[in-house]
Amino acid sequence: MDSEWVIDAQGLEKSYGSGASRFDALKGVSVQIAPGETVAIVGKSGSGKSTLMHLLALLDEPDRGTLQVAGNDAKSLSKRAVNELRNKEFGFVFQQFFLTPNVSVLDNVILPLKIAGTGGKERRRRGMEVLEQLELADKAGNKATTLSGGQKQRVVIGRALVNAPRVIFADEPTGNLDTATGAVVEDILFDLNRSQGITLVIVTHDEELAARCDRQIYIRDGLVVSRTASTHTGAHALSTADALTAGGAA
């Protein structure tokens, strides 16, 4: 279905617990994401940014508010349809790698295809294609545990990419990496956006990474706030501007 937005969320609310321990994670957040866009969801831990991503990625259901994903109303979708949507349209990159140990790199990468029920030959072909793209083809047979951190995160990106998704959700994709490898991983993600038009939704508290995105959504205490409310110093803003140019050059 043609839609201006790949994701269109209006007035999302989500709370956990009840009574005195009730915690309102989101208090009415509206977010719209266009196809091919790169969007950063920025906020401190506990701000509700991860909850927002979970809702956008259909990993959780909002208490209130409407959510349209690729033209479908999320509420009207069956459980099966939601699973299929996540499997076919979304890719996930998490801060932690969540690679299956003692299983080869290739097998880790093709997991979404396996879940989708793609045939063995096609899985292998797609998996190798993605690994070649990420310059990991020579590691295809290695156990995932033998790789370095940067290589592992590249495998994770490969796994997110293998089903040719429309949107990749990345939750602190560089949080677990040193600056240099983190930068390489960022470059890969933005390059995928440019070359394949994959929409990127990046959850981060890293201003530099956020600044590389087309658009930033600042979340604070469960609400979308303006940038200034979230950042404190002009110097910080300056450094993000530097990063932006650096990212463009990379």
Binding site: R80, L85, N87, F98
Partner: peptide, 16 residues
């Protein structure tokens, strides 16, 4: 736990 969560996030149904 993580692996199961990941598989479910990637669209594997509870039944599977």
């Amino acid at each position: 736990t993580r692996e199961i969560g990941l598989m479910k996030a990637m669209g594997m149904s509870g039944g599977k």
